[in-house]
């Protein structure tokens, strides 16, 4: 419970933002908060793979891209029903995760990083090639999904999705399935010789995480009212890994804290200088060096 407090605190903070924004920041603040929450969903799902499963995927942003383009294309074509959009997204993302997972999970370590990177770039180039839907430039949306027409509804739906994702991942990690996943990260050979089919379990985790990130992509499209291939680019996958590491891999609250810190630093530093990444990089190294378990370790107790 104690370890969950920082995440719960972050949720409370997000819940207070619409009210805060009436005094300070206005729609700039709410849209910043929405971006942070969407990033957090991506990071929470990625941490199931990296932090708990030992699968360092460098292509997780591809799922955000898939989700946002399913939403973007559906909305452009006049399908504004959220249920339909979500059903399509889940189906396509699950299929993509299944196919790429079956191939990538045959490898481990650096090979796994490289192969997931390659699949991610494949999605990036595919989206860039969709000339009917904006190609490289991306696509401006004229509609949101019907359910999200109200700004407040959209805001709290994103918060709801974040809380639900976090809760789901927390439960999965503590379940039978999660235990095997966590054990296989530390000693795959032993887990196999106990009678567990590690491949199938990792694949399942990969699909769960992919679908979750794709749903975040749907939210992103609705929030930004714009979709871009850049969402799926490797830099964004790298950002997601940074968020997970910054927050603390395999911790209860890390991914949420990491997303909050990432967006705050990005905004804060980029208002100071255009080359904000020059400061951000060394800062990240310092955090990784001095707070080995990321931000969450400053608060969490070791088990």
């Amino acid at each position: 419970m104690r370890n969950a407090l920082p995440a719960l605190f972050a949720f409370a903070l997000f819940a207070a933002v619409p009210w805060l924004s009436e005094y300070w920041g206005g729609s700039y603040l709410t849209s910043l908060a929405m971006r942070a929450m969407i990033l957090a969903i991506g990071a929470v799902s990625l941490d199931l793979l990296i932090g708990h499963g030992g699968m360092v995927s460098f292509g997780h942003a591809a799922f955000l891209g898939i989700g946002s383009y399913v939403a973007g294309i559906a909305l452009t074509e006049g399908t504004t029903d959220l249920t339909t959009i979500l059903a399509l997204t889940v189906g396509i993302a699950a299929l993509f995760a299944l196919v790429t997972g079956v191939i990538s999970l045959r490898t481990t370590g650096v090979s796994f990083i490289m192969i997931t990177l390659a699949f991610g770039q494949m999605v990036f180039f595919t989206l860039s090639a969709l000339s009917d839907y904006g190609g490289d430039d991306g696509l401006t949306l004229w509609d949101r999904a019907t359910a999200f027409e109200e700004d407040t509804v959209l805001y709290f739906s994103i918060l709801g999705a974040l809380v639900a994702s976090w809760f789901l991942i927390t439960r999965i990690v503590g379940s039978r399935f999660g235990r095997v996943l966590r054990a296989a990260k530390q000693n795959e050979a032993r887990v196999e010789t106990l009678g567990y089919g590690v491949f199938g379990m990792r694949l399942t985790a990969y699909v769960i995480a992919g679908v979750m990130a794709a749903i975040a992509g749907v939210l992103l499209a609705n929030q930004a009212e714009f979709v871009s291939p850049a969402t799926a680019a490797w830099q964004r996958s790298g950002d997601l890994i940074i968020v997970v590491v910054l927050g603390g891999m395999g911790t209860r609250s890390g991914a949420v804290l990491g997303a909050l810190a990432f967006v705050a630093l990005e905004e804060g530093l980029s208002s100071l200088t255009h080359d904000w990444r020059l400061i951000f990089g060394p800062l990240l190294i310092l955090i990784v060096l001095y707070a080995k378990g990321g931000l969450a370790s400053l608060w969490e107790r070791r088990v």
């Binding site: 439960r171 999965i172 503590g174 379940s175 039978r176 399935f177 999660g178 235990r179 095997v180 567990y196 379990m201 399942t204």
Partner: peptide, 10 residues
């Protein structure tokens, strides 16, 4: 089965 995603195994 170990394909159980809910319920605290601990």
């Amino acid at each position: 089965s170990s394909y159980r995603f809910f319920g605290s195994v601990a």
